[in-house]
Write a protein that binds this DNA or RNA. Sequence first.
DNA 1: CCGGTGTGGATTTTT
DNA 2: TCCACACCGG
Length: 762
Amino acid sequence: MKDYLNGLNPAQHEAVVNTKGPALVIAGAGSGKTRVLTFRIAHLLNNGTRPSEILALTFTNKAAKEMKARIAEIVGSDVAKYLWMGTFHSVFARILRSESEKTGFPSNFTIYDSADSKNLLKSIIKELQLDSAVYKPNQILGKISSAKNDLISAESYKTNNHFITRDRNSKQPETGRIYQIYTQRCKKNSAMDFDDLLLNTNILFRDHLDVLDKYQKRYKYLLVDEYQDTNYSQYLIIKKLAALHHNVCVVGDDAQSIYAFRGAKIENIFNFRTDYPEHKLFKLEQNYRSTQNIVNAANSVIAKNNKQIQKNVFSEKHEGELIDVYEAYTDAEEGYIVANKITDMRMAQQFHYKDFAILYRTNAQSRVFEESLRKKNIPYRIFGGLSFYQRKEIKDILAYCRIVVNPNDNEALKRVINYPKRGIGASSIAKIEAHANHTGQSMWQIVKDFEKIVDIKSSGRLLKPLAQFRQLVLDFVIKNQEINASEIVQIIVKDTGMLKDLYVDKSPEGISRYENLQELTNAVQEFVSDFDALEGSPILENYLQNVALLSDQDKKSEENDYVSLMTIHSSKGLEFKNVFLVGVEEELFPSQMSVHSAHELEEERRLFYVAVTRAEENLIISCAKSRFRWGQVSSPKPSRFINEIDAQYLDWHVGTTSKNFDKKPREYRGNKELKSKQKLPNSQRKLSPISNVQNTSSSSAFKTSTLTNLKTGDIVEHQKFGEGKVIEINIDGNSVVAIVDFKNVGQKQLLLKFAKLKIIKK
DNA sequence: CCGGTGTGGATTTTT
DNA sequence: TCCACACCGG
C-alpha cells in the first residue's frame, strides 16, 4: 500500500507528498505527470482525507476515467468511487443540476452541443432577417463563446464599446442582439451549451454565497490537470473554490498549451505564482518517454518561444535514431512513403501496428494515408473526425430521448418532428416555431395543443401527422416513467420506425448506420448494467446527462492491432513508439509573421512540440511539395518548424526515395509540355495552366462520371475561357485531365477534373 | 411536401 | 472533396 512512493524520482516524490497549500507542478512531456497526480491523490487518501473531499478536474473524460482506475488500484475501488473526478464540464453540470432551484434552470436541463448551438443561431439569424453570409453562424458562435468564457453577459456585451466597434468593423453589428436572443432562447428551451455550464457555475457561486460556501467546505483539496489549457471561466471557478482551504494543486506544461483557439489562457499557469505567493513549485524535468534525440530536438524548437517557464527537460534513455525528414513530391507519394516505412519497420524491428501513429494537423488530411494504408492491407483506425455521437442516426435517436426528458428542447424537436418523414415540412415547422416564439411557449407546447391554433387547423393537411407525432412522444413519456434507459431506447428505435428504416437500407452507408444504431443500444445497455446505485437509477434522464459530454475518445478501444491516425490535438497525452508527423507544410503550420501574430506563432510551435514529444523511439516528419486540396493543386513549402529543429538531430531525405513509387507527381501526369519543367528548381517551377484554372469558380459541377464521357474532339464551354475543343483527355486512376484548345484564349489549357465545363457537342 | 439536381462555400483544432 | 442550401417539377 505504501510502496507507491518508492518508484518516484525526487521531484515527483516532493510533488506527491507536499499536499498542503497551493502547488504548481510543471510537468514536461513524458515526465510522469499522471503518476504524480494519481499518487498525490492516493497519498491524500492514505493520510486520512476522505475521497469526497477531493475534487480532481481533468481535460477529458477519458483522462478522468483512467486516473480513477489507477487510483482504485492503489486504494481500492470502494474508496476511489467517492472521488469527485471528471472534466470541468461534467462536474459542474452535475452541480448545476443539484442546485437547480438557484440557477433558474430545471435539474433536467439539456446540454446543447455545438451543432445544436449552431442550428439555434441559424434560426435566430433568419428570424432577424439578417444575411447568413455576413452573420456566419460559426463566427457568431465563436464570438458568443469567447464572450461567455470571459464571463461577459449579453447585456454587458451590448454596451461594451470594444465589442461594438469590433462588430461594426466586421459588419456584424447585431451580434450583441443575437447573443441576447440566443441566451433567452436557451433558457426557454431549458438548455445550456458547453460554455454555459461554466458560466452558470460562476453565476451560481457569485450570487449564492451559501452555495459557494458549501462547496468550498466540501472540497478540501483541489487538483487541476492540464492547467495550461483552462480558460478564464474555469480559472475563476477554481479560484473561488480554493479560496477557503488554499489546497489547490495545478499540473500542467506551458509548452503544451494548444487550446487558445477555444479560450484557453496560457496566462493562467504563468499567473499562478502571483495568485498564490505562498505556493510551492515543482518541476518534473526528466522525460521517461522519448530518446535523447527526440527530447533534444523538441527542446530546440520550443526554445524559440519567448513566453515560457524555464525548465530543462532531459532524457536518460538511449540516444536513439535521428529524426527522418521526407520531402515527397506529392501527397500520394507521401502516403506511399509512410505506408512503406511502416511495413519495413514492422518487419525489421518487430514492431506491432499499434506501435505506429500518424499525426496530422487537420482531419481532412487523413484520406491520403487511409488510401495508402488500405492498399498495403495495413490495419488502421482513425480517431476524431465525425464522432460517433455526431452521426445523424445517433443524433436522431438522442433527439427523441431528449424530448422525452425535456419536451421544451426545441432543437431536438425540430430535428425529429419530421423524422422519419411524416409530412411536416420546413414551412410547417417554421409556422410552429413562429407561434411558439410569439406566445413565449416551447414548440412542444404548441404541438401538444395544436388543435387550438387556427392557422394549423384550417390548412388541415398537418392534422394527421401532428397528431401522430404527439401520440408517439406522449407514449414514450408515459412508458419512460416505469422503465430504464435501455428499455426506452429500444422502444424509441422500434416505434419510430428507425430500426426498420435502417435495417432495410442495404447500401454500405445504410449498413453502417444500422450498426451504429446497434452500437448505441449496446452502449445504453452497458450504461444500465454498469450503473452504480450511488449515482441514482439507470433511467434515461441519467443517461442523457452524460452523453452530451462524451466524445469518441471515451469509447473504449478494442485490443486490436492497428495503426492510429489522429490530429495532433487529439494525440495530446498519448505516446507511440513510432510517430509519423505528416503534412508539415507552411499552409498548415504557418510561418509568416505578417499573417499570424506572434502569439499565434508560438502556439503553433507548441503544437509542433506536442507532436514531436509523442514519439518514444522513432520520429518521421514528412511533407509534400505538391498537394491536391479542395480540388486544386497547391505547391506548399515545408514548414519553418522543421528548420527550427537543430540540424544535428535530423536526417533529410529530399525528393522521391522510394524507387518503386510508380505514380508520377500529379501535376505532370499526361502532359508532355509540363514534364520538361519537372527539373526546374522549385522557385522557378510554374504550373501555369493549372493555376489559371484555380481562379475560376471552384464549383465541382464537372463530375467524374461526366468527365469519363468526355472525348477528344468534344466541344466544350468553360466559364472563364469560353468555348473550346478537347484535344487530349487523360484518365488515370482518380486523376483526370483534359487539354482544351480555347477559341479566344490563344493558349491551350490544361483542365483538371474539377474545372467547370459544359459539353456543347459530342 | 418531397426528392432530385445544381450550385456555391469551406476547412484547424474539442468539451 | 464534401456539405448545405436553393430551386424546380411532380
